[in-house]
C-alpha cells in the first residue's frame, strides 16, 4: 500500500500513468474501426513508416542545430504517419491487391528508411530503440501535453463521429447511397489511426503499437455482440492493461511496452477461455435463436429421429442442428 502511494507520488510515474491511461483509452477506439474494416494490420504499416518520420525529425533537428537532437522526432513521426496512412487509403480505394502491396512496401520501406536516415543524421540505430519499443518512463511534461491533445482529437473524432464511421466501415456502398462524405470519413479514420500510432509510440513502441489498438478489441469481441459495447469494453481493457502493465514495471525491471502487450494477450486468452462457458449458459435450455421460423425443409419422419450415436458429421447435410445460426 505504501509502495503504491510511493509510486503515485513519483512525478515521473505520474506522467507515465496519465499517458498510459490516455493511450489505453484511445487506441482501442480506433482499433475497433480498423478491425471492423478488416484492416487490423494498418496500424503496423503506419508504425513502420512512422519510424522514418522519427529519423527525419532527428535529421532536421540536427541540421538546424537544435539542442536535444530529438525535439522534432515526434512531429516528424506524426507528419509522416499521417501522410503514410492517407497514401494507404488512397491506394486502397484503387484496388485491394495493390493496397496490400502498398502496406508491405510500407513495412519494409519504413524500417529501412528510418535506419538509413538516422545514420545520415549522425545517430545510430540504437537511438531508434526507444521509439521501436517505447520509452514511457521518460515522458516529459511537453510530451504529456502533446499526448493529451492528440488523445482528445482521437477520442473526439472516434466517439463523436461513431455512427458515421460505423456506417462507412460497415457498408460503404450504403453509406455512399446515403450521401455521406465517405471519402472524408475514410480519411478521418486514416488520420486518426496515424495519430494513434504516434501517441501510442511512447507507451508501447512502434513495433507493438498495433497490439494496443487491436488486442483489446479482440478481447471485447469475445464477450459482446454489439459494436458500441465492443468499443467501450475494448477501451476499458486498454486502460486496464496499460495502467497495470506500467505499474508492474515500477517494481520489476521489465519493458513497459512488452509487459502491457503480454498482459493484453493474457486477457485475450482468458476471455477466449471464458467465452464457451458464458455461451453454454446462454445456449442451455435448448435455446432456439429462431423459434418463430417454421421448418423449411420437409423431412421424412424417420430422419427426424435424433441420431443417438456419435454425430454423423456429414459435412453437406443440413441437419436441424447446423441450420441454426452459430452464436
Amino acid at each position: 500500500m505504501d509502495e503504491l502511494r510511493l509510486m503515485l507520488s513519483d512525478p515521473l510515474m505520474q506522467r507515465a500513468l496519465i499517458a498510459a491511461l490516455l493511450v489505453g483509452a484511445a487506441a482501442p477506439v480506433v482499433g475497433t474501426y480498423l478491425v471492423q474494416r478488416r484492416l487490423s494490420l494498418l496500424g503496423d504499416g503506419i508504425g513502420h513508416i512512422a519510424l522514418t518520420g522519427v529519423a527525419l525529425g532527428w535529421l532536421v533537428g540536427a541540421a538546424m542545430g537544435l539542442r536535444p537532437h530529438d525535439v522534432l522526432t515526434i512531429p516528424g513521426a506524426v507528419l509522416t504517419a499521417v501522410i503514410g496512412s492517407v497514401l494507404i487509403e488512397v491506394v486502397r480505394r484503387r484496388g485491394r491487391t495493390s493496397g496490400d502491396l502498398a502496406l508491405a512496401l510500407m513495412f519494409y520501406g519504413g524500417i529501412a528508411g528510418g535506419v538509413l536516415i538516422i545514420g545520415i543524421a549522425g545517430g545510430t540505430s540504437g537511438n531508434l530503440m526507444a521509439y521501436l519499443f517505447g520509452s514511457i518512463s521518460t515522458v516529459s511534461s511537453t510530451d504529456l501535453i502533446l499526448t493529451a491533445v492528440l488523445s482528445a482529437i482521437i477520442l473526439g473524432i472516434g466517439l463523436g463521429l461513431r455512427t458515421a464511421l460505423f456506417a462507412v466501415s460497415h457498408d460503404e456502398e450504403f453509406a455512399i447511397a446515403s450521401g455521406l462524405p465517405v471519402w472524408l470519413l475514410n480519411m478521418a479514420v486514416a488520420v486518426v489511426a496515424a495519430l494513434t500510432v504516434t501517441v501510442a509510440m511512447r507507451v508501447v513502441g512502434l513495433l507493438l503499437v498495433s497490439a494496443l489498438m487491436i488486442v483489446p478489441v479482440a478481447v471485447a469481441q469475445q464477450l459482446t455482440h454489439s459494436f458500441s459495447r465492443t468499443m467501450g469494453l475494448a477501451s476499458i481493457v486498454g486502460v486496464t492493461v496499460c495502467v497495470v502493465g506500467l505499474s508492474i514495471t515500477y517494481w520489476h525491471n521489465v519493458s513497459p511496452g512488452a509487459t502491457i502487450v503480454v498482459l493484453a494477450i493474457g486477457v485475450y486468452l482468458l476471455a477466449a477461455a471464458a467465452r464457451p462457458l458464458l455461451h453454454r449458459r446462454a445456449a442451455s435450455a435448448a435455446h432456439d435463436p429462431h423459434p418463430d421460423i417454421p421448418d423449411d425443409v420437409r423431412v421424412p419422419a424417420a430422419a427426424t429421429k435424433k441420431p443417438t450415436g456419435k454425430p454423423t458429421g456429414k459435412p453437406t447435410g443440413k441437419t436441424a442442428e447446423s441450420s441454426r445460426c452459430p452464436s
Binding site: Q36, S40, F166, H170, D171, Q221, T224, S226, T230
Partner: peptide, 15 residues
C-alpha cells in the same frame, strides 16, 4: 461483414 458484430439497432440507426 465487418470484423465486429453489431446489433440490429446499430445497423438500422446508421440509416
Amino acid at each position: 461483414a465487418g470484423g465486429i458484430p453489431s446489433t440490429a439497432q446499430e445497423v438500422v440507426a446508421s440509416g
